[in-house]
């Protein structure tokens, strides 16, 4: 196991029981996400990339295999311990933003810090810094319905990063955005990846989006079928 791995999966499988029939979603995946990496996870729907993302994000536990998140093995951990692990290590960005609608941008961003037990004042200070960081310093008091889609996703990114996670998991982050806005959001993610050193894992089926990452992992039928580094020009090397 690599010491500086943010997430490490060894022969991880995940099987769902549907009406007594076990359906394999992941059939043995080994993968290491290093600190500061920029990875795109691609594949058709049903390929297992969502399942893999849930596992990498500590939202789910593997049926077999070993999974270490932030250097800690997830095996046998209680839901509360997993919650703590997610809060400490992972930032999530969702396709549909998942912002609390009756809550200001500032308090949306501060939300993960609540579950860290941080005081309200410090939470808001940190959230304000983070909103400034994603270019929304002038929108702190706005509610999600007062923000554009691109702005909402920026708020979500600020929320994902306010805990200073090792890994930011973004599930189709541009799926609900037009091309220009989507590109700006991707640019922000890349910029944060470089500047903050947070590893970014993008789940997407958009080839163009995937091409911007420095590493592409392609999945099919619950397995990784290719895992390649991408050169600066955006062309797959292998």
């Amino acid at each position: 196991m690599t010491a500086d791995a943010a997430i490490e999966a060894i022969d991880v499988a995940r099987t769902y029981a549907l009406d007594g029939v076990s359906v394999p979603a992941l059939r043995g995946v080994s993968l290491t996400i290093a600190h500061g990496e920029h990875v795109a996870l691609v594949g058709p729907s049903g390929s297992g990339k969502s399942t893999l993302m849930h596992l990498l994000g500590g939202l789910d536990q593997p049926t077999s295999g070993r999974l270490r998140i932030g250097g800690r093995d997830v095996a046998g951990r209680t839901p509360a311990e997993m919650a703590h692990l997610r809060n400490a290590t992972i930032g999530f960005v969702f396709q549909s933003f998942h912002l609390l609608s009756r809550t200001s941008a500032l308090d949306n961003v501060a939300l993960p810090l609540v579950y860290r037990g941080m005081g309200a004042r410090e939470r808001r200070e940190r959230a304000a810094v983070m909103l400034e960081r994603v270019g929304l310093g002038h929108r702190v008091g706005h509610r999600p319905n007062q923000l554009s889609g691109g702005e909402q996703q920026r708020v979500a990114i600020a929320r994902a990063l306010v805990t200073e996670p090792a890994v930011l998991l973004a599930d189709e982050p541009t799926g609900n955005l037009d091309q220009t806005t989507g590109a700006a959001v991707l640019e922000l993610l890349e910029q944060l990846n470089t500047a903050e050193g947070v590893a970014v894992v993008l789940v997407t089926h958009d080839r163009e989006v995937a091409a911007r990452a420095r590493r592409q992992i392609t999945m099919r039928d619950g397995r990784i079928v290719s895992d390649t580094a991408v050169d600066e020009a955006g062309e797959a090397a292998g």
Binding site: L59, P79, A80, R86, H98, P112, R159, T163
Partner: peptide, 14 residues
């Protein structure tokens, strides 16, 4: 919302 809060670190107890 419950799912989101859990993803962000809310324990079942919270």
């Amino acid at each position: 919302e419950i799912g989101l809060r859990m993803a962000l670190g809310a324990r079942p107890r919270d």
